Amino acid sequence: MKLSCQPFTVHKRVPLTISRGTTAQSTNLWLRLSAEGIEGWGEAAPFSIGTHQQTLEILQADIARLQTALEGFHPFDRQAIEAVVTELSIHSASRAALDVALWDWCGKATGQPVWRLLGLDVERIQPTSVTVGISSPAAAQQRSQDWLQQTSARALKVKLGSPNGLEADQAMFQAIYDHIPASVSLSVDANGGWTLDSAKVMAEWLSDRQVTHLEQPLPVSQNADLANLKQHSPIPVFVDESCFNSSDIPHLANLVDGINIKLMKAGGLSEVLRMIHTAQACGLQVMFGCYSDSSLANGAMAQVSPLARYLDLDSHLNLRDDPFTGLTLANGRLLPPNHPGLGLN
């Protein structure tokens, strides 16, 4: 099999601000895997969490090494390919691109969508949330209304953890809450922007406003405080930045209520499936998230979405220049195509 990749830049319609900063665009990699006249696609999106950085340059170097190392393999040689990827210490976003391309190739080779190969029921897919970043109360209220008009969303994720403190967080959330239909569910993601005491206060305050769950309230460095927060929080506590892959989950089982799985952190759909099964065995709920991913990466996650309780696969909906098509947003639900593989164009 042969690998090729090319960078592509996507621009957000509305820049997204979280507790760590603002993102307006991203240059991702489109990986194409060719064998027997069939081409499988995958995507690698750069991301950073604290000192953990996967830059475009790092990912391009990964793909260059894989092009040489995997030339003699067939796409069905999954176990052998995984061993090579592990030996080369390939970063998770690059592994994700390769693994998704292998699944896409397999689906196309067998004439089946990935979700059907896995025996999944797309009728079980939950609505995907759309995200409102940190801003002024007026801007947040307008952004939430714009999202609802654009997508008919049934779930909204609100980014909190403002550097201006809890009063700013509460004012912004209240502005959204006062104008959102009761039929739209609300969740909150602080991206590690709170202290333990602040998180306890906000968990109580948000519970009074029917928030479904609270994501990454504390920095990764304060994982030890999660059990204390879980004990006092009236709403479920999820982690994102604190959980990369399946090996992280057992350590979190008694500290939180759920985990956020992202394709780029996990390293591909194969590891996403491992994470889901591990989380379920540990009694944890599962949600899916994304970075500045296009429809290609989010479309891959849509293939396994029937297995998640909460979905936040909205990044491609906020792009002005998404190069891929094929996903359907119906009644707030992101549905994978019925075509072979990922089914994208």
Results as ranks from 00 to 15, higher is better:
Gly267Asp: 12
Ser294Tyr: 02
His251Trp: 13
Ser270Pro: 07
Asp312Pro: 02
Ser305Met: 04
Leu311Ala: 01
His316Asn: 06
Gln285Ala: 15
Val272Ala: 13
Ile276Gly: 06
Ser315Leu: 07
Ala253Arg: 08
Lys265Thr: 03
Ala266Thr: 04
Asp321Gly: 01
Ile261Met: 11
Cys290Ile: 11
Leu319Gln: 09
Ser315Lys: 02
Gly299Met: 11
Leu307Ile: 09
Met301Thr: 10
Tyr291Asp: 12
Ile259Gln: 09
His316Phe: 13
Asp312Ala: 12
Val256Cys: 12
Asn298Gln: 15
Arg320Ala: 14
Leu311Phe: 09
Pro306Arg: 07
Leu313Gly: 02
Ala253Val: 06
Gln303His: 11
Ala308Leu: 07
Ile261Lys: 05
Pro306Val: 08
Leu319Asp: 02
Val304Gly: 01
Asp321Asn: 14
Asn298Thr: 15
Cys282Tyr: 00
Met287Glu: 09
Gln285His: 15
Lys262Arg: 15
Cys282Ile: 05
Val272Gln: 06
Leu255Tyr: 10
Asn298Leu: 15
Gly283Ile: 11
Arg274Asn: 14
Leu313Met: 11
Arg309Phe: 07
Lys262Thr: 10
Gln303Ala: 09
Thr278Cys: 12
Ser292Pro: 00
Asp312Gly: 11
Gln285Pro: 02
Gly299Trp: 10
Tyr310Lys: 10
Asn318Ala: 04
Leu255Asp: 14
Gly258Trp: 11
Ser292Cys: 14
Asp257Pro: 00
Lys262His: 05
Gly267His: 11
Leu307Gln: 10
Cys282Asn: 10
Ala266Trp: 06
Arg274Tyr: 07
Leu252Thr: 11
Lys265Pro: 02
Leu269Trp: 07
Arg274Trp: 07
Phe288Arg: 00
Leu255Asn: 14
Leu307Cys: 06
Asn298Cys: 15
Val304Tyr: 13
Leu307Asn: 05
Ser295Lys: 12
Arg309Ser: 13
Asp314Met: 13
Asp322Ile: 00
Asp321His: 02
His277Asp: 15
Leu263Arg: 05
Ala308Lys: 06
Arg320Cys: 12
Leu284Thr: 05
Asp314Thr: 09
Met287Lys: 05
Pro306Gly: 01
Val304Gln: 08
Leu296Trp: 07
Ser270Lys: 01
His316Ser: 11
Val256Ala: 08
Val286Gly: 00
Ala300Thr: 12
Ala300Asn: 04
Lys265Ser: 03
Asp321Leu: 04
Ser295Asn: 08
Val272His: 05
Asp312Asn: 12
Met264Gln: 15
Ile276Arg: 12
Met264Tyr: 09
Tyr291Gly: 03
Asn318Trp: 07
Tyr310His: 14
Met275Asp: 01
His316Gly: 01
Leu284Cys: 00
Phe288Glu: 13
Leu263Ile: 15
Leu284Trp: 03
Glu271Asp: 03
Ala279Lys: 05
